[in-house]
Simulated scan of single mutants.
Amino acid sequence: MSKTLSTSALAKNRAISGKELFSQLEACGFIQRAGNEWKLLPAGEKAGGQYFDHPKYGKYITWPEDLSLESSSANPTNSSLEKLVTATVIGKTFKLSANRMNSILSELGWIDKALKGWTITSSGTAAGGEQKEDFRSGIPYVVWPQSITKNKALKTTISEVQGEAASEEAKQETSDDSNFRDKFEAKLRTTDGHYVRSKAEMLIDNWLYMAEIVHAYERKLPIEEEVYCDFYIPTGKVYIEYWGYENDSKYLHRKAQKQEIYKQYGFKLIELEDKDVQNLDDVLPRMLLKHGVQSY
């Protein structure tokens, strides 16, 4: 007969945090949160879970030491339930720390930093994430389907952060954005060293730099489509698009497509035209503040 362990002891035995194991057990349909306690569900009992009354610590759930967390059929109400994992587990896949992994998920716009812990965004929910809360401390955190490690946007961002070359698959992809970038080469050098494609973009980039606002140029949107923004501000998860070439029919078509994508995914977007670029000191601070980004 297999030795039984408390959830905390089983987590320690498996070299993971108690929070992570509770999340896995919940995802498998073995337990359910009920007030301030965990309730053992039928699937959990079938897997070997049982209540134990300790004279000092009270009532808690114990599990077989060799408990299997294969969840494909554990939850009778959802046979297709996928195992949910924390940023710690995802990070191990890419040889990154949990903090580094959460920073990347935040940069993608999938989570936001809370006073303590992390909260999910609408984009994170669309990517398959689920909001959780530590039952002892109340600190929020997010769990993800195990298949998130195959997400194209996530893999691309990690590859860029680690300084790795883009995959051959990514290099072979074509889009209106990539064709546009090929046609208009980035030759103008900004104050912070970026190379941009127009004087208007140079003025915007220089303004952001002088305002001490961290920003990226031509950041790929965290979606499956091959779409790039003009500027991205990680603080606030804000995208900036400068619309030029208003007399070009192909450009106007591309503009309409991108506007629809921003709307579809609910991304925060600041749109600038030539008249705005001539008056950035008045225009950008006001627009940024609407999205929680303070300048000057």
Rank of each mutant, 00 (worst) to 15 (best):
Lys12Cys: 07
Gly18Thr: 07
Leu10Phe: 08
Gly29Asp: 11
Lys220Leu: 14
Gly244Asn: 07
Lys3Arg: 15
Ala74Val: 02
Ala216Val: 02
Ala15Cys: 12
Tyr60Arg: 13
Lys275Arg: 13
Asp205Trp: 02
Gln259Leu: 15
Trp243Phe: 15
Leu188Glu: 12
Leu188Cys: 05
Ile148Val: 14
Ala126Trp: 04
Ala114Ser: 13
Gly292Phe: 04
Asp281Tyr: 01
Lys152Val: 07
Ala126Ser: 06
Ile148Ala: 04
Pro76Lys: 11
Glu218Ala: 08
Asp66Ala: 13
Thr62Ala: 03
Glu70Leu: 11
Val293Thr: 06
Asp282Val: 02
Ser79Pro: 02
Gln259Arg: 13
Met101Asp: 01
Met101Ser: 10
Lys258Gly: 12
Ala15Leu: 13
Arg181Ala: 09
Ala47Lys: 15
Gly129Trp: 03
Thr149Ala: 06
Ile111Ser: 06
Glu169Leu: 07
Cys229Arg: 03
Ile61Gly: 12
Ile90Phe: 03
Trp110Met: 04
Leu115Ser: 00
Ser147Ile: 04
Leu272Val: 04
Leu203Asn: 05
Gly48Tyr: 09
His253Ile: 14
Pro42Met: 11
Ser178Phe: 06
Trp243Thr: 05
Tyr265Asn: 09
Pro234Met: 07
Gln264Asn: 12
Thr77Gly: 04
Glu37Phe: 11
Thr174Gly: 08
Lys12Gln: 12
Glu224Ser: 10
Val214Arg: 08
Thr125Ile: 11
Leu288Thr: 05
Ser17Leu: 01
Ser80Asn: 11
Arg181Pro: 01
Arg181Gln: 13
Gly29Ala: 04
Ser103Gln: 12
Tyr57Glu: 10
Tyr262Gln: 13
Pro64Ala: 09
Asp177Arg: 03
Phe184Ser: 05
Gln131Phe: 10
Ser137Pro: 00
Asp66Tyr: 05
Gly244Lys: 09
Ala126Lys: 15
Ile270Gly: 13
Gln264Pro: 00
Ser17His: 02
Val143Ser: 09
Ser106Thr: 05
Lys155Pro: 00
Thr125Trp: 06
Ile233His: 02
Asp176Asn: 14
Lys39Tyr: 02
Glu107Trp: 00
Tyr51Lys: 10
Glu212Cys: 10
Lys250Pro: 00
Leu252Phe: 00
Gln24Ala: 09
Gly193Ala: 08
Thr119Phe: 00
Tyr262Ala: 09
Pro145Ser: 05
Ser137Lys: 02
Thr156Gln: 14
Leu108Pro: 00
Lys3Thr: 09
Ile223Asn: 11
Phe22Ala: 05
Gly266Ser: 06
Asn179Ala: 07
Pro76Gly: 10
Asp177Asn: 12
Ile90Tyr: 05
Lys275Met: 07
Gln50Ser: 12
Ile223Ala: 08
Tyr217Ser: 14
Gly236Trp: 05
His215Trp: 05
Ser106Ile: 01
Lys220Gln: 14
Pro234Ile: 10
Thr235Leu: 04
Tyr51Gln: 11
Tyr265Lys: 03
Gln172Gly: 10
Gly163His: 05
Lys275Trp: 09
Arg33Gly: 02
Asn75Leu: 11
